[in-house]
Amino acid sequence: MNSRSKTSTVLVVLTLGFCFLACSFLLNLWGHPALRAPVPLVDLAFIEPSTARLSAADLIKAKADTSNFECYTCHDKKNPVKIKYDTNEMIILPTEHQDLKMGHGRHNRNNNCFNCHNEKNLESLQTRDGRELKIEESPQLCGSCHGPTFRDWEAGVHGRVSGYWNRAMGGFERKTCPSCHDPHSPKFPPRKPAPGPHALHTAVASSPAEQEHH
């Protein structure tokens, strides 16, 4: 084969090669983006700013049902409440209050309803130094024992503050203690965490059977 016919062969091969390339480009034969597992939308419950629970103050503000705080619907004002203890000096809760979980502190020293509730007016609270407080004024009461935490709370540093950081531009709301802590068992309740991050490139199982296999 002389040089000229070799050139011709090369040119013909190239022509065919280019034709083949053009076709495969048009048919988009390769280089498809890898299939990604769809990322599910997060449950809206993880976005809304509710607190762990609702305090009396929250309920009053929301004009919600506060009948739970109307003690004298059942109790009798003239008949003071008597607290009963078992042999371990644990309070025996009456059936009407079985929903309460008594766990304030790691000791039993708070095993007395009237540390906080006012025995003379069950619908109000009382501090250790004998001040009477409305049920929605609980931070004063909590603060009478939890001094440093109360100080932080007053500064907006313990607990949540929402609204305007710039107080000249708008109002703000500071949640009170029972919005997060159950007074009878104040430890912050655990919860289910929101879903974690999804990687950009996640291999998708090719068939449902394979998915089951994993």
Binding site: S3, K6, T7, L11, L14
Partner: peptide, 10 residues
């Protein structure tokens, strides 16, 4: 160029 050149460039 010669055929090698075309082949290489192609």
């Amino acid at each position: 160029g010669d055929w090698r050149y075309y082949a290489w460039m192609g």
